[in-house]
């Protein structure tokens, strides 16, 4: 039997969850034995070259590109996992939710204390840029998500336990210490 294939991505996240994946330390060698990676920042494969078994999503959706990538993941992965607070509930980027996006843009580019050099008072509007959404969306409001692993970042032991359980089909029993929201 061929090895299960994993894809990962970071949407509106800080890459901290990916760092947490690397926090499994030496077990990464076991992981390479267990699974194959496809599209992922870990191996730098930019586009899906195979259909995957597991897609791991870090970050919520704050712009049109995030939506596009997430939908691609849903299309190409049998199982999707929301990894970390941002994917699950928007996380810190979602602090802007509830505030009109115009107000946020003006604070960021025109009125904030660190915008001194924007002398032409431009709000980024290049057609090449992804379009900003009215709020940051949790991933499960955009596509169906199968599993959730909370934490900011999730504990490496939690990620390890979950991935191993998924790959081996074993039951996942999570100890108290592993489920944390910070």
């Amino acid at each position: 039997m061929s090895k299960p294939i994993i894809a990962t991505t970071s949407l509106a996240g800080c890459f901290g969850c990916h760092m947490a994946i690397l926090d499994i330390d030496a077990r990464i060698l076991q992981l390479i034995d267990l699974v194959e990676f496809n599209k992922s920042p870990i191996d730098d494969i930019k586009t899906f070259t195979k259909e995957c078994d597991i897609g791991i999503i870090e970050g919520g959706c704050c712009n049109s590109e995030n939506i596009h990538v997430l939908k691609e993941f849903r299309k190409h992965c049998k199982i999707l996992i929301s990894l970390g607070e941002c994917a699950i509930m928007g996380g810190l980027p979602a602090l802007r939710n509830g505030i009109p996006v115009k107000e946020c843009l003006e604070e960021a580019y025109l009125n904030g204390p660190t915008v001194g050099r924007n002398t032409e008072r431009i709000l980024p509007n290049d057609e090449e840029l992804p379009m900003i959404l009215d709020k940051v969306y949790p991933c499960h409001e955009i596509v169906k998500i199968d599993y959730y692993l909370p934490g900011c970042p999730p504990k490496a032991d939690l990620i390890w336990a979950a991935v191993v359980a998924l790959v081996t089909g074993d039951e996942l029993n999570i100890p108290y210490e592993l489920v944390k929201f910070d």
Binding site: V101, L105, E106, L123, N125, M131, I132
Partner: peptide
């Protein structure tokens, strides 16, 4: 969902 931001910029 992109309407407001596009309008703003």
């Amino acid at each position: 969902s992109v309407l407001a931001s596009c309008e703003a910029v």
